[in-house]
């Protein structure tokens, strides 16, 4: 006999409430702002999709988006291979393993704004160690407060310093989970070091690398604190990423409608690209099953 009752709702309810407070309500508030013009005294006027059109057509948004994609691209192209390379050269056994792991974890333990402040001082042309070294020892003109290229290099270097460890640790976890037997089998087959990497290590690291790429994409695409502290988006607008621009609009100009619309677009892009990454990397898995070679 089939019994029906409504008890199940009581089990779902706590999660529902949590998700509502955590995601749905804040999100809907933003949606609410994005379709209206707001004035003081809680005056709201319906604007429909005006703010979305305005943002999508604005050159300022295009530029920030371009900078954002370029930054993320640079981060992924540097940090992923570098992380794998460092993980490959780390010891698998012995005294140095915990030493390496702790050294690797250190940058990630430092608060983001502290990282920004550290690199800011580090790179200052006259008093910073890095800035002084470039300008006065090597004689290279390096000033991130004046030169956009120098600012970009500093931000990328800072992010590589801060976050490559994450890729290293994930890749290392993948590597140590490969049993010795695989390496032995490869040796016996006469495989070269490159073949071992290509046919054993890389496939075995694939899952953790998917996670590493996704995490690094999302974090670098949403980056705010470190460049805000380091360059404040400057010089000019040269390092104004989406998040920095968004805060300028929302808090600097107090344009809540356009800022809300921009947040939603920003969120949609992050979601879309993450989804693309994930499906592309998984599709490769699927293709693997079907691919036949003779």
């Amino acid at each position: 006999m089939k019994t029906e009752n409504q008890k199940a709702w009581f089990f779902v309810l706590p999660v529902l409430i949590l998700v509502a407070f955590n995601a749905i309500i804040p999100m809907m508030t933003v949606v609410n702002y994005s379709v209206q013009e707001t004035f003081g005294d809680n005056l709201f006027f319906w604007e429909g999709l005006t703010w979305f059109e305005q943002i999508l057509n604005s050159e300022r948004f295009h530029n920030a988006l371009g900078r954002q994609f370029f930054f993320t691209f640079m981060i992924l192209i540097i940090e992923i291979p570098l992380g794998i390379a460092i993980a490959l050269s780390m010891p698998r056994k012995g005294f140095w393993v915990p030493v390496c792991l702790i050294l690797m974890s250190l940058p990630m333990l430092i608060p983001w704004n502290v990282v920004g402040a550290m690199w800011n001082i580090f790179a200052l042309p006259d008093i910073g160690l890095l800035g002084y070294f470039f300008n006065h020892v090597l004689g290279i003109n390096y000033d991130m407060t004046q030169d956009p290229t120098a600012a970009w290099i500093t931000i990328i270097a800072m992010d590589v310093w801060h976050w490559t460890s994450l890729v290293v640790l994930l890749a290392y976890a993948g590597l140590v989970s490969i049993p010795d037997a695989y390496y032995q089998a490869a040796k016996i087959d006469g495989a070269s070091n490159w073949s071992v990497f290509r046919f054993i290590q890389l496939p075995k690291m694939k899952n953790v690398l998917t996670i590493a790429i996704l995490l690094r994409f999302m974090d670098s695409f949403n980056i705010y604190t470190e460049p805000f502290v380091l360059t404040g988006g400057g010089p000019g607008n040269s390092t104004t990423f989406l998040s920095i621009d968004l805060v300028k609009i929302a808090l600097g100009q107090f344009d809540l409608g356009p800022a809300a619309a921009m947040s939603l677009i920003y969120f949609a892009i992050t979601l879309l690209v993450s989804w693309l990454f994930y499906t592309l990397m998984n599709r490769e898995n699927l293709n693997d099953y079907e691919e036949v070679e003779h």
Binding site: Q184, I188, F199, I200
Partner: peptide, 18 residues
């Protein structure tokens, strides 16, 4: 090992995963 022309089968099932 690479030049010895030998084969080895392990207790664990070792094949190239992909």
């Amino acid at each position: 090992t690479q030049k010895r022309q030998i084969s080895l089968v392990h207790q664990f099932f070792v094949n190239y995963p992909h």
